[in-house]
């Protein structure tokens, strides 16, 4: 384990801004894609009158 404490972990040896900036955007991209796909699915199911049985 290379971390002394949580603040040490978040600081990332002084590179926290860059490391967390990358990971945050990665998270946003993935979440954004999932939300877009689910929205598209919901409108489609509504149009077709399908019951939304699962959330997949």
């Amino acid at each position: 384990m290379s971390w002394e404490s949580w603040s040490d972990f978040f600081a990332m040896g002084g590179y926290g801004f860059y490391v967390w900036g990358s990971y945050l955007v990665a998270l946003l991209c993935v979440l954004g894609e999932v939300v877009l796909v689910r929205n598209r699915r919901r409108t489609l199911h509504k149009q077709l009158g399908l019951k939304d049985k699962s959330s997949l």
């Binding site: 384990m1 290379s2 990332m12 860059y18 490391v19 990358s22 990971y23 990665a26």
Partner: peptide, 24 residues
């Protein structure tokens, strides 16, 4: 990536971006 992999002696912790950069 965050708890097992050691600190890189050249790049410090910044290299941890590799775990999303290279797979992407």
């Amino acid at each position: 990536g965050f708890f097992v992999a050691p600190t890189d002696f050249q790049q410090g912790e910044a290299y941890r971006i590799i775990f999303i950069h290279v797979p992407a």
